[in-house]
């Protein structure tokens, strides 16, 4: 794992990509922060982190960082070296993941200077600022894990980056879309769940190529859905919109900026990260079986 980590880190800093990522994040956060803290005079650096500009810059920068991690290995056929090395796949994935996280730690470390500098000119709520920066770090960790997973699905860096940006833009706008278009009634939620399970079954089929597994999963979930709807209709009240809203990882940043250390948010970020790291290992292991 250490060897992979060192090689990746060297390659990020050997090319221009690490510097672009760091500069992009810092430039946009700096721009938003100077607007909020310097022009508007708020002592809260954390507000800057929740601004759309800063969030978009973060998503774009991190997808640039993650796009090449496995896609490039596949294109250059160097993945064969990784497969033949006496290292477990999870260690290879962790080595790469930690290298990307290390690159991301640099702009986060620089951000940590902001509240300190602001404190020379007024009263700053340090705990609130630093807990938001921590949440921002965890949010980035999620995006990196998802980007790494998407990169492991394709041979093209561009496709990997576009998929990552697309995914997180969709997630960002999800609450708005949900509030505007989806009705709250339990009937609507029930129908949405039926459709969602259909999509899940299609994904299972695409991943395993096994029609029986896909149909099995689909039927079991649809049956559970139907039984729950018939016997406990009340829990379907706005269930689907709520579920989608809960998936929006950017909304989880707001409680931190408002002064609540939201432990569920921390757990939430860590579990999303864990799921994507796990999926990356699985997607690479699966390639062996193709």
């Amino acid at each position: 794992m250490k060897a992979i980590y060192k090689r990746e880190l060297k390659s990020y800093f050997g090319s221009v990509i690490a510097y672009i990522v760091i500069a992009l994040i810092l430039a946009f956060v700096g721009f938003v922060a100077s607007y909020i803290n310097l022009f508007a005079g708020y002592p809260n650096f954390e507000y800057a982190l929740c601004e759309p500009y800063a969030v978009f810059a973060l998503v774009i920068a991190l997808s640039l960082l993650t796009m090449r991690c496995f896609a490039d290995e596949k294109r250059e056929k160097t993945d064969q070296l990784l497969y033949s090395l006496p290292i477990k796949m999870k260690d290879i994935v962790m080595g790469k993941y930690l290298a990307m996280l290390t690159v991301y730690l640099i702009p986060v470390a620089v951000m940590c200077a902001w509240p300190l500098i602001l404190s020379f000119f007024g009263k700053v709520n340090m705990l609130q600022s630093y807990s938001t920066i921590l949440a921002q770090l965890l949010l980035g960790a999620c995006i990196i894990a998802a980007g790494m997973f998407l990169s492991s699905l394709t041979e093209s860096q561009v496709i990997a980056a576009v998929m990552t940006i697309g995914l997180f833009l969709a997630v960002y706008f999800m609450p708005t879309i949900v509030d505007t278009f989806l009705p709250d009634s339990s009937m609507a939620s029930f129908i949405c769940f039926i459709l969602m399970i259909g999509v899940v079954a299609i994904i299972v089929y695409a991943l395993t190529g096994n029609i029986f597994a896909a149909l099995g999963v689909g039927f079991v979930l649809e049956a559970v859905n139907l039984v729950l709807y018939l016997f406990k209709t009340s829990i379907f009240e706005s269930a689907f919109p709520d579920m989608l809203n809960n998936l929006s990882i950017f909304n989880r940043l707001t409680p931190f900026a408002n002064g609540t250390f939201d432990l569920t948010g921390v757990v939430y970020y860590l579990s999303i990260t864990g799921v994507f790291v796990f999926l990356t290992v699985q997607s690479l292991e699966k390639k062996r079986y193709s």
């Binding site: 050997g14 250059e76 056929k77 064969q80 070296l81």
Partner: peptide
């Protein structure tokens, strides 16, 4: 193992 296409990193 040396695969058919040597798995080399061009940037090293």
């Amino acid at each position: 193992y040396l695969p058919e296409l040597p798995p080399l990193y061009g940037d090293m």
